[in-house]
Design a protein around this nucleic acid. Structure first.
Length: 497
RNA sequence: GGCCCCAUGGUCUAGCGGUUAGGACGGCGCCCUCUCACGGCGUAAUCUCGGGUUCGAUUCCCGAUGGGGUCACCA
């Protein structure tokens, strides 16, 4: 008598659609389908400073692109809506009320300064770092009075101070935490919005989530969630923490060391079915000698017993090889259709025409002139000389390129006008001349010293490909030999290598 | 640093007490071939270490080491 399976993916719309979201979504999706359950999409936008509707839209689009469609979600509704946490404020308010009333949670009036001071002292003394519980002893009447008087406060969970919290992770077995090691987590922020911990638990319960399948980074906050379920008197779901995708150096996958946006993979010409297959081989195997499978085949064969917990390194080379397999299996006509759905669309070609029409004398010049708009990674060897402006070292150039990419990360508007404005601001801040930076950007995104205007070009290349190329370009520059130092310096340099 | 998780070639993995430790990517070599690629064949490369348990440990237990995560009014 297996209970109904209801699982969810709960992304936070605060940036690009993340490959890790697709990874976790895949396992949720497959598990749901395996057990004829529901796969739910819930948008966790309680960080009102960072959440954006554009990001939410991008996440939905990307998840659809990889084919992981949901049974309930903010766009299609369902019996447990709304599916966007920002629209569920009344629910959290109601639920936290019961916790405050029962004493399982309490108001905390401590200032950020005081919390900082407490924490830094704890850190200095190498002790457990967490809230010291000052406001926990406040008399209910005083707490009420101060709140009524308009004093700002957060609401914290009153964690049990003794004993231990034990829960079962489906993949690891029993995991135990000493309660004294668990912080009195903030559940409601000063702005009245719930934190992840509260909203997540309340929604999972109200939406009937049976299995929480999420990334391992959540493992150490699970005892807080377990404590919350206990405080509410609710039955906790089953916990399943998937291993984290890793960079080549084994650290948690990150945009500094790996393309991480699903939009990049689409723009770079990966097929969604290949990407999703590859993600299915991260920490999971269908059998000993097979690694190519569809989502449907993965569903048929799925079992948690086939999960391995060592954090898998995400390898673009291996992904590309798998992508090649999928590509070759397509018919000629299908490949043409894919190309048209990618960049060889009328729409994209038309967007390029204004950039080149004044620069071409014959049609045949269009292709060579626009070649880099249709490429993935570029080779900078031919422009190596140009990449080092006068009096700039390889390291300086590499650093400025990386700084520029990071500045671009905050850019929501990727139009030529906005990009020019942002880039000029960047130059002002960094002290580099626009002449230097504009040329470096041009070289980075095109590997050419002559192109249509940089910002139009940048906008057309697109932010995902552009970021990838600029980072690669930075790496290329870093390896360039430094310009010839003055002879005197050579004579005295002894620690060159 | 405290707490928690993890550990098979460079990478993804199979293995669930006795195997010549299997497959894939990548590397190298050969074949195919007008070139390149595809394809085929071959090859080098792995059980982190130390204790147990056992007739026997890659496999089970403990410890060490190493790696990772987490310690926010971000998720």
């Amino acid at each position: 008598m297996a209970a109904a399976v209801r699982v969810r993916i709960a992304p936070s719309p605060t940036g690009d659609p993340h490959v890790g979201t697709a990874y976790i979504a895949l396992f949720n999706y497959v598990f749901a389908k395996k057990h004829a359950g529901q796969f739910i999409l819930r948008i966790e936008d309680t960080d009102r400073a960072r959440s954006t509707p554009q990001s939410e839209a991008a996440i939905l689009r990307a998840l659809r692109w990889v084919g992981l469609t949901w049974d309930e979600g903010p766009d299609i509704g369902g019996p447990c809506g709304p599916y966007r946490q920002s629209e569920r404020a009344a629910i959290y308010q109601r639920e936290i009320g019961t916790l405050v009333a029962s004493g399982a949670a309490y108001r905390c009036f401590c200032s950020a300064e005081r919390l900082d001071a407490v924490r830094s002292e704890q850190r200095r003394e190498n002790r457990f770092v967490g809230y010291d519980g000052l406001c926990r002893g406040l008399a209910p009447a005083e707490s009420e009075a101060r709140a009524a008087a308009g004093e700002p406060f957060v609401i914290r969970l009153a964690m049990p101070r003794t004993g231990e919290t034990v829960f079962v992770d489906r993949l690891r077995g029993e995991v135990k935490f000493d309660n004294a090691q668990i912080d009195d987590q903030v559940l409601v922020k000063t702005d009245g919005f719930p934190t992840y911990h509260l909203a997540n638990v309340v929604d999972d319960h109200l939406m009937g989530i049976s299995h929480v399948i999420r990334a391992e980074e959540w493992l150490s906050s699970t005892p807080k969630h377990v404590a919350l379920y206990q405080a509410f008197g609710w039955q906790a779901p089953e916990w399943i923490h998937m291993p984290l995708l890793r960079n080549a150096d084994k650290s948690k996958i990150s945009k500094r060391k790996n393309p991480v946006s699903l939009d990049y993979y689409r723009a770079a010409g990966f097929l969604p079915e290949a990407l999703v297959n590859y993600l299915g081989t991260m920490g999971w195997s269908i059998s000993g000698d097979r690694e190519k499978f569809t989502v449907a085949e993965m569903t048929d064969a799925f079992s948690w017993d086939r999960v391995s917990l060592g954090g898998p390194v995400f390898d673009l080379v291996k992904l590309s090889a798998m992508n090649a397999d999928y590509l070759r299996a397509l018919s000629d006509a299908e490949i043409v259709a894919r190309l048209r759905g990618w960049r060889l669309s009328d729409e994209f070609l038309q967007s390029l025409v204004p950039l080149v029409r004044a620069r071409i004398a014959r049609l045949d010049e269009f292709v060579p002139m626009t070649e880099f708009f249709f490429a993935g990674d570029l080779d900078y060897a031919a422009v190596a000389r140009e990449l080092l402006p006068k009096n700039r070292s390889p390291k300086e150039v590499a650093d400025i390129l990386v700084a520029y990419v990071e500045a671009l990360d905050g850019e929501r508007d990727f139009s030529a006008v906005a990009l020019e404005q942002a880039t000029r601001a960047f130059c002002e801040k960094s002290g580099w001349t626009t002449k230097e930076v504009f040329m470096l950007v041009r070289l980075g995104i095109s590997a050419r010293k002559a192109t249509p205007p940089v910002f139009e070009t940048l906008a057309a290349v697109g932010c995902d490909l552009a970021r990838r190329r600029l980072r690669l370009c930075a790496e290329f520059v870093k390896k360039l030999p430094a310009p010839q130092p003055a002879p005197a310096e050579v004579a005295t340099a002894k620690d060159t290598r």
